[in-house]
């Protein structure tokens, strides 16, 4: 029996890595701009987020992108935790928070930051068999993106990129995707960690249909120069 298959079972989530449980039973306090945020992982599936008002206990999903870098989604919030360098980025409904993990060796003034370093990059991120997005990061605040099977149909999307460490970025692409493509209809945000050393990515797609965790690999292709303008 030929066991090779397309993405019928998991769709755009096919290449997602296994959930990671490294953080279970760990607690992090993230200090940023005079405020403290607590993240307590109560086992493999639930965490408590404390932003100083009413603590929120909620389910989480964690994917690992590097030896000590994690993408954690809890509800509509995301934490990118770099436990090697002691830095964290929180993506909250009220905006981005760049903090330092208390008790780490991070220099007091060091933070993740928005970055334009990716401008000039064109990359294909593959979610599963025959399912991918082409990205052309042609300016800091916008990218051109297309999705299989309509890979020729590029459109503009709002873009933010946060430098997590050398060769690694948290990339936030927002905008309504077209119909009949590889990601669920109604999707309007794709937030992933992109690792240009290993050419792996991990993150999530959100929209009307809910949230789906994704992962996979990247590759480079040749694109029309005009798409970079």
């Amino acid at each position: 029996m030929n066991l090779s298959n397309d993405s019928a079972k998991y769709g755009v989530g096919q290449y997602r890595f296994a959930h990671n449980y490294d953080l279970k039973d760990k607690r992090f306090t993230i200090a940023a701009d005079g405020k403290k945020y607590g993240l307590t992982f109560n086992g493999k599936q639930e965490l408590t987020f404390d932003a100083g008002d009413k603590p929120l206990t909620i389910g989480y999903e964690c994917l690992k992108i590097d030896k000590q870098v994690y993408f954690v989604r809890f509800g509509m919030r995301v934490a990118a935790l770099d436990t090697e360098n002691g830095l964290a980025t929180l993506v909250l409904p009220e905006g981005y928070v760049f903090g330092v993990i208390e008790g780490s060796q991070a220099a007091p003034d060091k933070r993740h930051t928005f970055s334009e370093e990716m401008v000039g990059t064109a990359v294909r991120w593959v979610f599963g068999v025959g399912r991918f997005t082409d990205r052309i990061y042609f300016e800091e605040a916008r990218c051109r993106a297309s999705f299989s099977p309509k890979e020729e149909a590029f459109a503009f999307y709002r873009t933010k990129a946060v430098k997590i460490k050398e060769g690694m970025f948290l990339v936030d692409v927002e905008g309504q995707v077209p119909e009949f493509i590889c990601v669920p209809p109604g999707s309007d945000r794709i937030l992933v960690l992109e690792d240009y050393e290993h050419m792996l990515f991990a993150g999530c797609i959100t929209g009307k249909a809910g949230t789906i965790m994704v992962g996979g690999y990247g590759d480079f292709h040749d694109y029309d120069e005009a798409l970079f303008k």
């Binding site: 370093e117 990716m118 401008v119 000039g120 990059t121 064109a122 990359v123 060769g167 240009y196 050393e197 290993h198 050419m199 480079f220």
Partner: peptide, 10 residues
Amino acid sequence: MNLKDYPRKE
């Protein structure tokens, strides 16, 4: 920069 040229390991 074009991260295709990122100085990754071999």
